[in-house]
Design a protein around this nucleic acid. Structure first.
Lengths: 229, 229
DNA sequence: CGCTTAATTGATGTTAATCAAGAGGCGTGG
DNA sequence: CCACGCCTCTTGATTAACATCAATTAAGCG
């Protein structure tokens, strides 16, 4: 199926970056490459966790359903991010593709064995999970205290910084992986409020909206300032 | 200093529960017991992380300072919880005692060695960190969408369940480890709003407020219902 | 007992949700 | 190619919730 991990697009970003070429060769035989179309679900909350995976291309969402049946997005996954809960019983959230995605998938049991065999990979996963926890807590502060404008600006700032790190630099038009409704679900706002804030930022000159889901960041500095307000 | 880990109050709840008596004896010699008074700071955000620790008694807060200088609480720590960021450069948050606390402290480097030597402990830490991440994401949903009443009720429900697990059961008066102001910082509300919600819950018959920081939960079921709204 | 800080209660203002309608894309079929 | 329906996004008017401002009461503490 896959030729080799050596040429993987996330070779130096994913968990496997902790492994030597020899170790990688072993792991390689355990994983399979999978493709998901936008909207397809990889993991459903409550399912016994079967899969662990590395996201290679595309963006996914980590979603929960509130007690009153509304959808909420609690996190996003970008290329290089790890998906799954080794050693855990059941999944706490849905994992759904926001764009077409490519991922490198393992059976949970196999992946747990791999973690045991390669402790440096387990350490890296621990560090990443702690970093993810810190990021979730940053958002916790934003969600608790920031007004609508700061939330939307902060989301855009986060998104662009994250995509920049992946090499998609430049002030060219970028296709948002989320609809207005999904942004609302992520930020705990309504579609209308998100839309109004986009308009406000466009009028202020921070961004352009060439139509559809495309967006151009004109003034990243102003965006940061709006996110801090 | 300390006699033995065998009799530790959190022997079967802390990370060390992953260790055999023999292994514990080794770790025991590396740790020292520390006492902090209410209000004292164990870790300051930005500090190079020096210590790792297990909380034995008392409650601590994980606090951040927002860009506009306001304090925000992003999490609470209870007996048995682990404190620290092994393998990480610097601390992301302040760790402060809300009550007098007792903890079992290690130098970071020593603790990292211990994790390497006892992989089952590292695995347990990984699982706990992932569980903590899930809990943070639950709060993320609450903070984003729930109204003031649900936030305060949810906080009380969480707190009582957490303390119940530690053996402090019963409908007797419990001393809140947080002031109204700290609850406000945790929930992203103002002191006034928190106070009003407490009054509402008292009038509704869910709780009693015998004065000071004491509180009696009269109707845990009603509390849960209020938290879901 | 008096001082200081924390908590409660009340009156008013602001922000974002809600309700409602219109505009822009996009695919389908005539 | 245009007409139509469907969906997403945008914009406007109204309402409800919480913050803010202000005052009072209660609790800790020397």
């Amino acid at each position: 199926m896959r030729k080799t991990c050596e040429t993987c697009v996330v070779r130096d970003r994913a968990l496997c970056s902790a492994l030597s070429p020899d170790q990688l060769a072993v792991l390689s035989s355990l994983g399979t490459q999978r493709h998901l179309k936008r909207g397809e679900t990889l993991v459903r909350a409550g399912d016994e966790t079967i899969v662990c995976a590395n996201l290679q291309t595309g963006v996914m969402k980590i979603a929960a359903t509130t007690s009153d049946g509304e959808a909420a997005i609690v996190g996003l996954l970008y290329p290089g991010d790890f998906i799954g809960r080794p050693f855990a019983g059941s999944a706490g959230h849905d994992i759904v593709a926001l764009t077409d995605v490519m991922l490198c998938s393992f059976s949970r049991v196999r992946f747990e064995e791999a973690l045991r065999d390669h402790q440096q990979m387990e350490s890296l996963l621990l560090q990443r999970t702690m970093a993810e926890l810190d990021r979730a807590r940053e958002w916790l502060v934003k969600m608790g205290r920031a007004n609508a404008g700061a939330r939307v600006a902060g989301f855009l700032d986060d998104l662009t910084r994250r995509l920049d790190m992946l090499g998609c630099t430049g002030p060219q038009a970028l296709e948002l992986p989320l609809s207005r409704g999904e942004i609302a679900e992520l930020l705990g706002l309504t579609i209308e409020t998100v839309s109004r804030q986009f308009t406000r930022m466009r009028v202020a000159g921070a961004i352009e909206l060439p139509g559809g889901r495309r967006i151009i960041v004109r003034d990243a500095q102003m965006l940061k300032a709006m996110a801090a307000a």
